[in-house]
Design a protein around this nucleic acid. Structure first.
Lengths: 360, 360
DNA sequence: AAAGCAGCTGTGTTCGCACACAGCCTTTAC
DNA sequence: GTAAAGGCTGTGTGCGAACACAGCTGCTTT
């Protein structure tokens, strides 16, 4: 264990030169059968393990990853995966891994496609992207395959497509979990509402999956006798409109006792409800935004589900690294934990996201 | 960005040799004021960052960490920190970090002290240990300080002592959290019991802290009107005795509706209650042992709190690595997240602990 | 028989940095 | 005055692996 076995040791033991050992290790050919067997024997005997440090130094290669994600300036959510990608890139920069960012407007499939094509033309070693648009993303993956550029997906999976890996949340299950969390405060006959605060709800597959999950929970637990309704609302930036929307909802359903906000905009609801007369409402939402955390702490939000968006970016880069530099196997689908966050435990998650503890 | 700046580049720019640059970087002295300033100037100008890979290769040092933890064969809990330490050691082995394990019997301060002394005599580079016994651990830390061996603590902190870092759980807060989780199923006037299944409860500071936390939660929420009692029981291996203990407890307190099991032995309670007639009891416990998970899945345990024991070991080794190899600052106190685990989200945590995704 | 050509092999250089060492030149001591 | 003692500098070697290249064999070709 102590003096690590080097290539020279096996060269000596098997009676050949370091060059031959190297050829065997890399399967470069030009090695006689006899020599190869001797070397393999010696490697097994001494339990040889190549020195990763020396190896990366000698390779002297560089791996260019281009990350294509929605513009974080138009949607603060994307700051988080971005920050995770940046952290990971700091951790692996010594190995010659370079990460470059390209952004596309959240709602523009055409710009998405155009940017992706430009990236592919620049011939990066890996493409890391968020395939928000199914059709265009399929095209991109096919072009990558044609040029032998491996692709890693985050946020949204394209199940049927060839890709190095997918790192993201399990939206359906997060809906199921929300059901569980909401049921604590409810009584038979109560109702809950799924609230989608988004512009183009039909395109937001995640939101629909979350709703499906929530409904699944309550249909698996029929004895709890909870009804589920759904309400979409686009003008969440307008406090006045929000307030009207909400009071309309509450007036229409007197037994509405729980809200499930399907994205990170819970705080919009509570901002709007500030003045409203209303019953005690159970509230479950997503993401540890400062505005949400304030309401969590004052117990106006009961639970936040943390989808670990920072980890999402981090883990995607690390998977690429593991695959291409360390040549390790990588899971095709990597779901991140769904953390249940309440006022009593949120501080740990915030600290983790700030991520003082960078690994290597 | 692309062609990384090397020591030669700054040597060229500042008009000195690589040797002098090296002396400046390491503050080895023997450099004229003028040369030093030129080099520093050039480093700033080119934004020089030493190549970690080349550096570790050239150092060719080895860092021996000895880990002293309770024997995992006598307490399965310790398999988890152990596995975390092993994982981390795999991740950093390329940097010359070697981890060696020494075990001590859970309940023997003298053996603990003896093993620690032997380790220190063997002169490791770092000592990583679980200071279960206050008095003896203080002695050990002082000996480490005298021999300039840095020490990292896991599981239990010695607040007043000099140490590189502490990685562990926040027991008090986990009790508070348990209070929050229990209260969901309770009504005013109900009672909860803290159940300590341990041999030497007075020595188990963590258990006492958890109880304090639970009581703190309910005294901060007096309107919930929940009474807290405590029950210690040592003979948890004996199903017959357990059953009598439990039925005694339930008979004595008719409004007992919640149990908080302060360590990982929740499954013992449920094993014993299998035949028992009993009201619907809310149950909160710790740790994702398979036996506990089975009860979680069948909803006989409502919540498990995950203290991330695997992470504990992992993070401790990584902190040592960050401090001594990467020369980064490390937080003195590192609390791990308190994950709330229910049947709807446990699978992610189990997958994480199995830890396919090893970082570097 | 000479030339050509594979198949196989060892040596040498490189990656960027750490550190030993020899070679200055200047100061101080006697 | 010389010797010793510094202060400061550049060169050179090594860490372990990757890869280029030259050299060696034995074989086929003409």
């Amino acid at each position: 264990m102590h003096p690590r076995i080097t290539i020279k040791d096996i060269a000596a033991l098997s009676g050949v030169s370091a060059g031959t050992v190297d050829r065997v290790i890399h399967g470069r050919g030009n090695v006689s059968r006899k020599a190869r067997e001797l070397v393999e024997q010696a490697m097994r005997e001494l339990n040889y393990e190549p020195n990763l440090i020396a190896s990366t130094l000698a390779y002297n290669r560089t791996l260019k990853i281009t990350a294509l994600i929605p513009d974080y300036r138009s949607d603060p959510y994307w700051e988080q995966p971005k920050s995770g990608i940046e952290k990971a890139s700091l951790a692996v920069r010594h190995y010659g891994v370079q990460v470059e960012f390209v952004y596309f407007p959240m709602f523009s499939p055409s710009r998405f496609l155009k940017e992706a094509e430009e990236i592919i033309d620049a011939n990066p070693d890996v493409l890391l992207f968020a395939p928000l648009f199914r059709e265009e993303s399929g095209q991109i993956l096919r072009r990558c395959a044609a040029r032998k550029i491996p692709a890693a997906l985050i946020n949204t999976d394209l199940e049927d497509q060839e890709a190095l890996c997918y790192v993201g949340q399990d939206s359906f299950q997060s809906g199921v979990l929300a059901g569980k969390l909401l049921h604590f405060g409810l009584r038979p006959g109560d109702m809950v509402a799924v609230i989608n605060l988004d512009k183009q709800i039909m395109h937001a597959r995640h939101l629909l999956e979350k709703e499906r999950g929530l409904r699944a929970y309550f249909s698996r637990h029929p004895w709890e006798d909870i009804g589920v309704i759904r309400a979409d609302f686009e003008h969440f930036e307008d406090p006045q409109a929000m307030q009207e929307f909400l009071s309309g909802l509450l007036n229409a359903h007197s037994r509405l006792k729980g809200l499930f906000i399907s994205n990170s905009r819970s705080y919009r609801i509570l901002d709007a409800m500030a003045g409203l007369e209303r019953p005690r409402l159970r509230l479950v939402g997503f993401d540890l935004l400062p505005a949400n955390l304030a309401y969590l702490e004052s117990n106006q939000i009961d639970f936040l589900i943390n989808q670990n968006p920072v980890q999402q970016g981090y883990q995607a880069v690390m998977s690429i690294f593991n695959h291409l530099i360390l040549r390790k196997k990588v899971e095709r689908v990597q779901y991140l934990p769904l953390d249940i966050v309440v006022s009593e435990n949120y501080s740990y998650y915030v600290a983790k996201e700030k991520g003082f503890q960078v690994l290597v």
